[in-house]
Design a protein around this nucleic acid. Structure first.
Lengths: 341, 341
DNA sequence: TTGAAAGCGCTAACAG
DNA sequence: CTGTTAGCGCTTTCAA
């Protein structure tokens, strides 16, 4: 039979509550008693039962991570780091998968049933976020999101400052002397990519760099389409861009290929920049200049604050919400960018 | 106040147990009663409490996934698919991160505390697997692993048949007329990569293909090192390989780059093959021929069988263990391979 | 077909 | 400082 607090209590002629308190190092217990309890616990191979504890405390030490697509590095970098942080604090992570167009009630129910102490939405469809905030709020479950643009005093929102990332890229390129800078964004359904495109546009406008209709394009994210767009941009010899910024690394790979097929050298004739610093970015030829988003940092910041609300049993982040928190990404300069010729 | 079974019971003048049974569609309850219970439950917005249920049933509907590195696609493809499958069956997944050299007792304790109904080890250090099996077994928690080579009647082991993957690659290359085939494996601490290397060697031997010391190399997985190895292989004009098989896609990328710098065209002068079909594989120039491992299938097979043991309350997989189950990967032929010149 | 009673393992008041 | 008592919300015998 699995030992419980009573087993220990009997063994020592103590009461369950004393044992319980001793186990949790309650100040009201004599340290000699604690010592004995701990010793017996070890000898009996006692393992506390988190379920029972949750039962009495009315809440678990489990936070749900709601995620549409863990397959992208941006998400799993966060996830992995967050898991470690929470585990270090003796909390656990339950993964909740959801469709992009998930049903708020269904998701809420799952969270409530399981008595989650908090939930973190990981790049989840912003369209449903207000409703989710409301529903979870009714049940006193605090919500935090990794997102660029959601803003509600009740929810903690932390994200990567992609605008700054784009700025770093553009500063880097203009510093290298580039003026005609192209951008390939995509896919259209990625609000993150559309945002980066917008940042690019604003930068071009603000710095009065020469723009051209064909120099800013939205791809469907297929390698063929990306190559085509690049070819169109680069085929116009008089006005071709000397640098192309892609809103993600995979597309940058395709652009490098397309450029090469046109006889252009990267970076001598064309600089190419990606976004995200995916695992393969250093393996490309030439190694890719790109931007690394601070998702480990995001995870750390978020864990700390989530643990804060949870421990204070606050139902949401209303008090002490720092407002939208955008962490700075890091430009990683490799060899796909060089001075404009 | 959150409605419970008593709330419903009072509302209808029934007892808790009747309500409880009605809610779970117990055959002993009149269907008219069930209808009324369900109706009130809906009206009151009743949400069952999984913790309480777990408390009485003595076990949760939560399976732990123990994983060292979710950041690799092989792992998160499995993870994502498994999560969906389990959720469809009303089970949940708790993520348990662990170091490569994790402490079996610590991990076991976590699983026990949380009353996990099963745990799945996801490409976890095989060195600790026997101990983990034992410890978890003591607590009646069944263990399943995604792994190529662990074999113990108590644990369910499913993996990707990498040997078959390598064979498909080699068959493809020899069919194209290649004889001098190189291999770059790595890193040395990846047993999966070392295994693929070994499969390559056996194939070469079995088919009496010409081998050469420099044609099989182990890299440290840095782009520079991989490039160097490729350069060495390809610099010997008389004996240079006409095809190189890399044990993963990133290295294939580096090899393509190295080849190009030596003035070799891919695939005309050199065929290159990767392994894993990472997201970027179709974006390379030329698009990469590679092997896609069947991790979604693995997840599906595993979920089904895990659910099986769990529902039968079996403590392990001893009965009805199909033995090591290796699922076939799929060769994806793109443009990085062509007939030998 | 339904109700009453007991208990899962633990925590938290309040007494002593 | 430690013990007693009373639940948390649900399931599960066993009776009625």
């Amino acid at each position: 039979m699995k030992p419980t607090t009573v087993t220990i209590a009997q063994e020592l002629g103590l009461s369950r509550s004393t044992v319980s308190m001793a186990l949790r190092d309650h100040p009201a217990i004599k340290s000699e008693t604690k010592r004995r309890v701990l010793e017996v616990a070890r000898r009996l191979n006692y393992v506390p039962n988190d379920i029972a504890r949750a039962m009495t405390e009315g809440r678990t030490r489990v936070v749900g991570v709601l995620c549409h697509h863990l397959g992208v590095q941006t998400n799993n970098r966060f996830f992995t780091e967050a898991a470690e942080q929470f585990e270090a604090a003796d909390y656990f992570i339950k993964y909740l998968s959801c469709a992009w167009d998930f049903d708020v009630d269904v998701v809420t129910n799952r969270c409530v049933r399981q008595n989650l102490c908090a939930v973190i939405g990981l790049h989840v469809n912003e369209k449903h976020l207000f409703a989710l905030t409301d529903r979870l709020g009714e049940h006193g479950i605090p919500l935090a999101v990794v997102s660029r643009l959601f803003s509600d005093p009740r929810v903690l929102a932390i994200g990567s400052d992609d605008a700054d990332g784009v700025k770093q890229i553009m500063d880097h390129l203009t510093y290298l002397g580039h003026q005609r800078i192209g951008c390939i964004a995509g896919a259209a359904n990625s609000s993150a990519c559309m945002n980066r495109l917008e940042c690019y546009r604003q930068y071009m406008a603000k710095h009065q760099l020469p723009t051209h209709d064909q120099h800013a394009a939205i791809s469907d994210y297929s390698p063929e389409h990306v190559s085509n767009l690049a070819r169109v941009m680069l085929s116009n010899p008089t006005q071709r861009p000397t640098a192309i910024f892609c809103t993600n690394d995979s597309m940058a790979l395709a652009v490098i290929g397309a450029a090469r097929r046109l006889g252009l050298r990267v970076p001598e004739d064309l600089s190419v920049v990606g976004f995200s610093n995916l695992n393969f970015a250093s393996f490309t030829d030439p190694p890719l200049t790109t931007v690394k988003q601070p998702f480990e940092q995001v995870a750390i910041e978020m864990t700390e604050r989530v643990l804060g609300v949870v421990r204070q049993q606050a139902g949401d982040f209303s008090k002490a919400n720092p407002g939208q928190l955008l962490l700075k990404p890091e430009l990683i300069v490799r060899q796909s960018t060089a001075a404009a010729s």
